[in-house]
Design a binder for these strands. Structure first.
Lengths: 224, 224
DNA sequence: ACAAAATGTGTACGCCGTCCACATACAATA
DNA sequence: TATTGTATGTGGACGGCGTACACATTTTGT
C-alpha cells in the first residue's frame, strides 16, 4: 500500500508531514516548509536555510514555495519569528523557577537574572536557531506579533523590559539610569551569548560557562 | 594613448591598480583582489565579498583568483585579517590619547576604556568591515599573525588583555576576578557594538550613542 | 636557449533564487 | 449537479555563484 504510483506524483505513505504525499495538493505546505526551514536553521544557522532544500524536504517542486512565501527572505523571517518565540519561552522557563514569595527587590533582581540566564541557555542549546533569531536585528521592541512571543505573549525584548521595570519599581535601579537600561543589559548578555554559541567560548566546559554567565549577570546587576 | 587595444586584453591606461592592464600578467593580482574584497566588505559585510565580483573589479577572469586564494573563504579570511588590524588600530588611536602622566590606576582604567571606545567607534564607523572582522569568531587569542595586528603588533584581543593586565597590576581588578575578565569585557562591548553597527541602535544620534557607550564602560569598570 | 614553474584563460558543472506559462484540484455559484 | 474562478503545484528557463580541469602565456632558473 505504500510507495504506490498514482497519477504523476508517485511517492506516498501517509498524506501528511513526515515523508511524502499522494495528492497534487500538499495540504499543509506552508507549515511543512517552515518546519523544514527551522530544521535547516537548527543545524547550520540562517545561511543554511535554503529554499530549494526546504521544498525538497517537503517533497515539492522549488517554485511551490512561492505560493506561501514571497521569497527566501520571507521564509527566513518566519523561521526567525519561531526562534524568537523559543528564546522567549526559554526566558519564561527560568522566570517560572523563581519563588514569588521573595521580597520584591530580590524577586526583581531574580527576574533580570532569569531573563539573562534563559537567553544564555538557549544560545548554548540551540546555536543555529539563536543565530537565526538575531540575524536581522530588526526592531523587536515594539512588535506585537505573537509568532515572536512566548507563552506570556511577550517577546524576548519585552520580557527584558518587564524585568527592568520591576527592578526599577523595587528600587533596584535608580530612575536616571532606567532609560536605555535594556540596551546595556542586552548588550552584555548578547555578547556573551555570541561568544558561547558561535565564538571562542564554544567548547568551554559546562561549569566554566555557567560561572561566566553568572559573573556577567553580577556585572550587569552591579553596574546597571 | 589611453584605451588602446593591444593583444586581446584591450582596456588600458596605466598598467596598475586603478582600472585595467595591458599585460597578460596582472602583476599584483593578490593585492588587487584583496582590496576589492575589502571594498565589498566595507559596504555589504562579509556576505557581500563575492569572488567573481572581486575578479571583475581586478579586470581578470574568475578563475585567476584561485592562483592567489584557495577559495572564496580564503579571500574572506584575508579581508577579515585586514579588518581586525583596523580594529586594533582604532583601539591604539584611543590609547594614544591617554596622558601617561596619570596615576597608575587611572591610567589603567583609561586603557580599558580606550580599548572599548576604539572598538565601539570602529563598529560605528565601518559596520561592514566590523561585521567581517568578527564573522568567524575564531581564536584570535593566541594568534601572532601581524596581518591581524595594529601598529603595536597586538591584535584587538591582545590589546584588551594588555589593558586588563595593567588594570590588575594597578589594583583595579582583584586577582580572583582576573581570569576570564577578557570575555566579560569583550561580551559587553561586543554586544553594544553589534546593536550599534547592525542592530536597533543603528540610527541613534551621536550623543546618545556616546552616552550609552560610556555607561556601558562604567558598568564594565564597576562590575568586572 | 630552453625547460620548468607561475600565472591567467576558456569551458563546463552543479547549485542557488526567481520568473513565466501551464496544469490540476478545490469551492462557490448557478 | 455542472461550471467557472481561484488557489496551489509543476515544468522549464535564466542568470549568478563557487569551483574543477585543461590549456595558453609569460617569467624564471639553468
Amino acid at each position: 500500500m505504500d510507495g504506490v504510483h498514482i497519477g504523476y506524483v508517485m511517492i506516498e505513505e501517509n498524506d501528511n508531514k513526515p515523508s511524502q504525499r499522494r495528492n497534487y495538493r500538499h495540504g499543509d505546505l506552508r507549515r511543512a516548509l517552515l518546519e523544514a526551514g527551522i530544521a535547516l536553521a537548527r543545524n547550520g544557522g540562517p545561511e543554511a536555510v535554503v529554499l530549494r532544500e526546504a521544498t525538497r524536504q517537503a517533497g515539492v517542486v522549488p517554485n511551490a514555495a512561492y505560493r506561501h512565501f514571497a521569497n527566501r527572505d520571507d521564509l527566513l523571517r518566519a523561521v526567525r519569528a519561531h526562534a524568537l518565540s523559543q528564546v522567549a519561552i526559554a526566558m519564561e522557563t527560568e522566570l517560572d523557577k523563581l519563588s514569588p514569595t521573595l521580597p520584591p527587590l530580590a524577586y526583581a533582581q531574580g527576574c533580570v537574572r532569569a531573563v539573562g540566564t534563559g537567553y544564555l541557555h538557549y544560545a548554548h542549546a540551540e546555536p543555529g536557531l539563536f543565530k537565526t533569531a538575531f540575524f536581522f536585528h530588526e526592531g523587536v521592541e515594539a512588535d506585537a506579533d505573537p509568532a515572536k512571543a512566548g507563552n506570556s505573549g511577550l517577546n524576548p525584548f519585552q520580557l527584558l523590559s518587564q524585568a527592568l521595570e520591576r527592578l526599577a519599581a523595587a528600587g533596584g535601579l535608580p530612575p536616571e539610569r532606567r532609560l536605555g537600561a535594556e540596551y546595556l543589559a542586552w548588550s552584555a548578555v548578547h555578547g556573551l551569548a555570541l561568544l558561547i554559541s558561535e565564538g571562542p567560548l564554544q567548547g568551554v566546559p559546562e561549569g566554566m560557562r555557567q560561572a561566566l554567565g553568572q559573573r556577567l549577570l553580577d556585572m550587569v546587576e552591579k553596574g546597571l
